[in-house]
Amino acid sequence: MKQKLRILISKPGLDGHDRGAKYIARALKDAGYEVIYTGIRQSPEAIAKTAIQEDVDFVGLSLLSGAHNELFPEVVRTIREAGGNNIVIFGGGVIPEDDIADLQKNGISAIFTTGTPVQTVIDFIENQREQISH
């Protein structure tokens, strides 16, 4: 894994609430990561394509519309199919507690719900970096 981690932040589905996604993107940039933000209304295929092209280490997905159970696993599947086997995928937004276990089973490494401090996300990223490099 490279010295400077590359992170893709994206919004799958049709949800336009991008305040959280943009905040996370900017805060991670300020924390020293290379961050790419796709904008809203991205299809799983488009996200996978950008993730591979940009050679990212992480993909962060944000969704507030309730479509996460369908779309997050679909993004994981598409990224893996496109060859992004080592990309760590995490998510955030309005996600009920009940849904988190299933999302994790389906390849979402972590879910950060509303009110999560950005430091928690950074800790997660650094923790993953250590795990991968060991």
Partner: peptide
Amino acid sequence: DLPTQIGYDSDDSHSIGEVGKV
């Protein structure tokens, strides 16, 4: 719901996951 707001029918592929949600 979002598909209605963006002019997609429920059977459009863009609508996956979003039908009836918001």
